[in-house]
Amino acid sequence: MELLTPNIGLLFWQIVAFGGLFFILRSFAWKPILASLKEREENIQSALDLAEKTRREMAAMKADNEKLLAQARSEREAILRGAKETADKMIAESRDKAESEGKRILDQARETMQNERQALIAQMKKEVVTLSLDIAEKVLRKELSDKSAQEKLVNDLVATSSLN
């Protein structure tokens, strides 16, 4: 039973020891320790929050970049397409133009050639006539150098040209 009967002296010392310990530790240890624990936890929490915020901002920025990139890409495509169309159009236009120009030049050349030929033919005709006349004159002059020949010619002529 002695085990179960508290000793007055030990009761006293325990009250003194525990009470003293509590009041000393409360102001001397627990307050600063708990405060710095709390401070550290808040620091960690704010750091985590900041990291999360930054991560979200990065994600938003990345999405923005993607959007910009996609926009730029589509713009580039549009420009390229436009340029190609223009080029095609230009080529087609110049081909048409060249074709028509060539045709015109050809026509013109053909016409000129025609004219030249006609002029040539006309001149040739004239020259042949002149030449024939000269030859005829020369022949006539030679034929008609004596009297008998002249008479004969006249006779022939008269004979051939039957007057109606």
Binding site: W13, L21, L25, A29
Partner: peptide, 18 residues
Amino acid sequence: FSITKNAASLLLSVVLLI
């Protein structure tokens, strides 16, 4: 109110804890 073995150990533990 003697500082018995237990009381001494008690005070020792208080000093240790502090």
